[in-house]
């Protein structure tokens, strides 16, 4: 994770097209400017960044399922629960599964675990729309970096 760059997903562990699910890993850095303020002397990953991590895993899931035809933008977060603290150096297992693929939107359910223990979970919804100019190649490049399987990128 590069928290200050909002690069939350380090690698995609698996993508299941039939099961409409994706698993990813995110390693919390030992140091980050984020920890200087959250909190002084007691570094914790902010809940808003855990939400972003779930959103990014869900977003890559939607991108893979739609073969990068459209870009998902987060539009709703429901039933978000943060069950334990996350500190520097932890490795997070992030899971996202599709709930509904609608017309112009997608809904997912996502969760994060650390060492097998639940960290957080939420129901997320995304507005799906054509890629804004100049965005698509950057998203494809980032997807390659994190190992989203090649056949979804063709």
């Amino acid at each position: 994770m590069r928290l200050e760059y909002f690069e939350m997903i380090d690698e995609v562990a698996s993508f299941d097209a039939a099961g409409q699910a994706l698993r990813a890993r995110a390693r919390v850095p030992l140091a980050s400017p984020v920890f200087e303020g959250h909190f002084p002397g007691h570094p914790l990953v902010p809940g808003v960044l855990l939400t972003e991590t779930m959103a990014q895993a869900s977003g890559y899931l939607v991108l893979a399922l739609t073969a990068f035809a459209h870009m998902p933008f987060l539009m709703a977060v429901d039933k978000a629960r943060f069950r334990t603290f996350v500190g520097p150096g932890e490795t997070l297992d992030v899971a996202a599964e599709l709930d509904v693929m609608g017309s112009g939107y997608a809904a997912t359910r996502a969760r994060i675990e650390s060492g097998g223990k639940p960290v957080c979970d939420a129901h997320l919804r995304f507005k799906i729309m054509p890629f804004p100019a100049g965005m698509e190649e950057g998203m494809r490049q980032r997807a390659r970096q994190i190992g989203l399987i090649a056949e979804t990128l063709s």
Binding site: A76, V100, G102, S103, Y105, A107
Partner: peptide, 16 residues
């Protein structure tokens, strides 16, 4: 879109 999501869920359809 929020309404469409709820309608899709309630009726088991996909509003186009």
């Amino acid at each position: 879109l929020d309404i469409a999501f709820a309608i899709d869920k309630a009726f088991g359809i996909k509003l186009p």
